[in-house]
C-alpha cells in the first residue's frame, strides 16, 4: 500500500508549518532591522492580548477558573482544603500543592517542553505569598492547572487563573495574584508575547504581583538585560498587573451578581 497521500487528501499540518515558518522569517527580518515593527496580531508593543476569564467551569472542584488570552487557553481546578496524607508530618500551617500539565494537543510539538517542567514549582512560589496558609493547618489545598492550548505567556496566565480559582474556592488570601510577562528584543520591550515572539526573544521577565497590596510575589528574569530596561520592564508589568487585577475583581463580582439574580 502506498504511503503517499492521494490528491484529495488534506494535510493541515504541512500548511500550518509553512505559515509558522513564514511568520518566524518575517519576525527575524524585523529583528535584523532593529526598528519598530507591527506584531503579528496587530497589537502595539505595550498592548496585552484580549482576555476572557470565567469561574466555575469544573463542577467537582471546590473552585475553578478558565482563562483565555488570545490563543492561550488554561483551566485551573482547586481541591480542598482536605486532610493531608497520613504519611506527611504534622504541620501547623497548610500545604499548597501545585501541578501544571499540558494536554497532548496544546503545542505544535507533542509533549511538554523542557522549559515547562518547572512551572509547577514557579506557580507554587507565586501563590504561596498570597495564600494564608496558617488558616488551614494539617490540611492541603491542591491546585491543578491544565494548559489546553499554548499560545505564549503560559505561566503568567496560569498564575492569574489559579488566583481566580483560589478566590472562587473561598481560600483565605491576602490579595489576588496577577501576572504578566515581557520579552526583550534588542532595544524593544514587548508585553504579553506570543509563542512565536518567545522563540526569538533575547530575554524574558515574568512578574507575579498583588495589585491591592502593591507587592511582588515572584520575579523571574532570563536572558540579557540592562539595569535601566529591567526597571522599565518591571514598571510596565506592574501597571499591566494592576489592570488585570481589576478584570479579576470584576469577574468575581459579576459571577456573584449572576448567582444572586
Amino acid at each position: 500500500m502506498s504511503a503517499q497521500a492521494g490528491p484529495g487528501t488534506y494535510s493541515p499540518a504541512a500548511a500550518a508549518g509553512d505559515r509558522r515558518r513564514e511568520r518566524k522569517e518575517e519576525l527575524r527580518r524585523h529583528l535584523a532591522e532593529d526598528a519598530d515593527w507591527p506584531r503579528a496580531d496587530g497589537r502595539s508593543f505595550h498592548d496585552c492580548r484580549p482576555a476572557f476569564m470565567q469561574t466555575g467551569p469544573t463542577t467537582a472542584a471546590s473552585g475553578s477558573a478558565y482563562a483565555e488570552f488570545g490563543k492561550t487557553k488554561v483551566i485551573v481546578s482547586v481541591f480542598g482544603p482536605r486532610e493531608s496524607k497520613k504519611a506527611m508530618m504534622y504541620s501547623d500551617v497548610g500545604r499548597l500543592n501545585c501541578n501544571v500539565s499540558y494536554t497532548t494537543f496544546a503545542t505544535p510539538v507533542r509533549g511538554q517542553g523542557a522549559d515547562n517542567k518547572e512551572y509547577s514549582s514557579m506557580l507554587h512560589k507565586a501563590l504561596e505569598g498570597a495564600v494564608m496558609l496558617h488558616t488551614f493547618p494539617k490540611t492541603t489545598v491542591d491546585v491543578f492547572a491544565l494548559v489546553l492550548e499554548s499560545g505564549g505567556s503560559d505561566l503568567p496566565i496560569i498564575i492569574s487563573c489559579a488566583s481566580l480559582a483560589l478566590a472562587d474556592a473561598g481560600i483565605m488570601m491576602y490579595d489576588l495574584v496577577t501576572s504578566v510577562s515581557v520579552s526583550c528584543f534588542r532595544k524593544n520591550i514587548i508585553i504579553d508575547p506570543t509563542s512565536d515572539e518567545e522563540a526569538w526573544q533575547d530575554g524574558s521577565l515574568v512578574v507575579a504581583f498583588m495589585p491591592a497590596r502593591k507587592e511582588i510575589t515572584q520575579l523571574t528574569l532570563t536572558g540579557e538585560w540592562s539595569d535601566g530596561r529591567i526597571t522599565n520592564a518591571v514598571e510596565l508589568c506592574m501597571d499591566a498587573c494592576s489592570k488585570l487585577g481589576d478584570i479579576l475583581r470584576d469577574r468575581l463580582k459579576d459571577t456573584a451578581t449572576l448567582t444572586c439574580e
Binding site: 498570597a130 478566590a167 483565605m172 488570601m173 491576602y174 490579595d175 489576588l176 498583588m210 495589585p211 491591592a212 497590596r213 479579576l248 475583581r249 468575581l252 463580582k253 456573584a256 451578581t257
Partner: peptide, 8 residues
Amino acid sequence: NYVVPGDV
C-alpha cells in the same frame, strides 16, 4: 456589596 481578597 461583594468584596474580594485585598479590598479595604
